[in-house]
Simulated scan of single mutants.
Amino acid sequence: MPHFDLPLAELRAYKPALTALDDFDAFWEKTLAEARQHDLDARFSPVDVPLTAVDVFDVTYAGFGGHPVRGWLVLPAGTTEPLPAVVEYIGYGNGRGLPHTHLRWAAAGFAHFVMDTRGQGGDGAAGHTPDPVGSGPASPGFLTRGIQDPHDHYYRRVHTDAVRAVEAARSHPLVDAGRVAVVGASQGGGIAIAVAALVPDLRAAAPDVPFLCHFGRAATLTDRHPYREIALYLKSHIGQDERVFRTLSYFDAMNFAARATAPVLFSAALEDLTCPPSTVFAAHNHWAGTERSMEVYTFNDHEGGGPYQQAVQLRWLPGHLRG
């Protein structure tokens, strides 16, 4: 696929108007306050795995609505003192999978908390967290579930779960609550951006080729899923455009980025049809914090830099977590 989006020089300057409405902050303050009325009830059960270099815990905690959310906590074996932590969010369609697929951050000496994404995990790594909330008509997938009202939208629940995941990680005695970063690729990157805005005292964030950014442009620029779900929904719900994009504005990572101040490391791929580079740069360029950087992969699609970007993160993140 040749380059299809703006030239790189224009991407670096691309800063479209934000879409957040006046009640954006109040919406999220109320949402999180309601979630915190439920006891976090974070439970960490040791898991017997054939791995000698790490200790693994099966995690359950209360997310949106008090619903149980699953996760993994992976620690370097024999950890006795609190460690800085990396909280990771997963890509679209996937769940937390199996513990042995989450070794990189523990191998680097960090506590690693992996959040299972509610209702996902049937299209890749297995998930173990149901989404007990129903929704109205939607396109196949998750992006248009509850699309008629932000209070009903699927990502209201997911982003709340994600904030509570940080709180659950911080509750463990072997996690240094003052040194926590969030990471994720694609959907996980979009969630990480939201959490960086909603949890103001994080040490760092590292979203790779993030999804959930600049919905208005994404829905008209690419015909690849998941953004295509928006167009398919509107194709059969004529005249609902304004209402749909109003709902999505409450979950747009571009709007969250304008409220996030932690140091951040983004990545974008210039042939990425799943998360077009202009949508990623829109979030990056609106980031409220002064320390922000972008790794650009010129001839890559949605795999982005893959292991190369992971190597960049492994060099970048320790400086923010170990200081």
Rank of each mutant, 00 (worst) to 15 (best):
D5R: 01
L6T: 02
P7I: 06
A9G: 01
A13R: 15
Y14R: 04
Y14H: 14
K15N: 12
A17E: 12
A17D: 12
A20E: 03
F44D: 00
P46L: 00
D48F: 13
V49I: 03
V49N: 00
T52R: 15
T52L: 14
D58F: 12
T60L: 09
G63M: 04
R70T: 09
W72K: 08
W72C: 05
L73V: 07
L83M: 09
V87I: 06
Y89K: 08
Y89E: 04
I90P: 02
G93L: 08
N94D: 03
N94W: 09
G95H: 03
G97R: 10
H100K: 15
H100G: 09
T101V: 14
H102K: 13
A107E: 13
A107V: 08
F110Q: 05
F110K: 08
M115W: 05
M115E: 03
M115I: 12
G119N: 10
G121C: 11
G122L: 14
G122T: 10
D123K: 14
S135E: 11
G136W: 04
P137L: 07
S139F: 11
P140E: 02
T144Q: 04
I147T: 00
D149A: 03
H153G: 06
R156E: 06
V158P: 09
A162G: 11
A165L: 13
V166P: 04
R170M: 11
S171L: 12
L174M: 11
A177P: 13
V182K: 01
A185G: 14
S186Y: 08
Q187L: 15
G188E: 06
G190C: 10
G190V: 11
I193T: 13
A194M: 09
A197W: 04
P200A: 05
D201L: 10
A205C: 13
P207A: 02
D208A: 14
F211D: 01
F211T: 00
L212N: 00
F215G: 00
A218P: 04
T220P: 05
T220H: 09
L221V: 14
T222N: 08
D223G: 15
H225D: 15
R228G: 05
I230N: 01
I230D: 00
A231Q: 09
Y233I: 07
S236H: 10
Q240V: 12
D241K: 13
R243V: 13
R243Q: 14
V244F: 02
F245L: 04
T247A: 03
Y250D: 03
Y250H: 08
F251D: 00
A253N: 02
A253C: 10
N255P: 02
N255T: 03
A258D: 04
L265N: 00
S267L: 02
L273E: 02
P276F: 03
S278V: 06
A283I: 10
H284P: 12
H286M: 13
A288T: 13
T290L: 14
R292L: 11
R292S: 11
H302R: 06
G305T: 04
Q310D: 14
A311M: 14
P318N: 01
H320W: 15
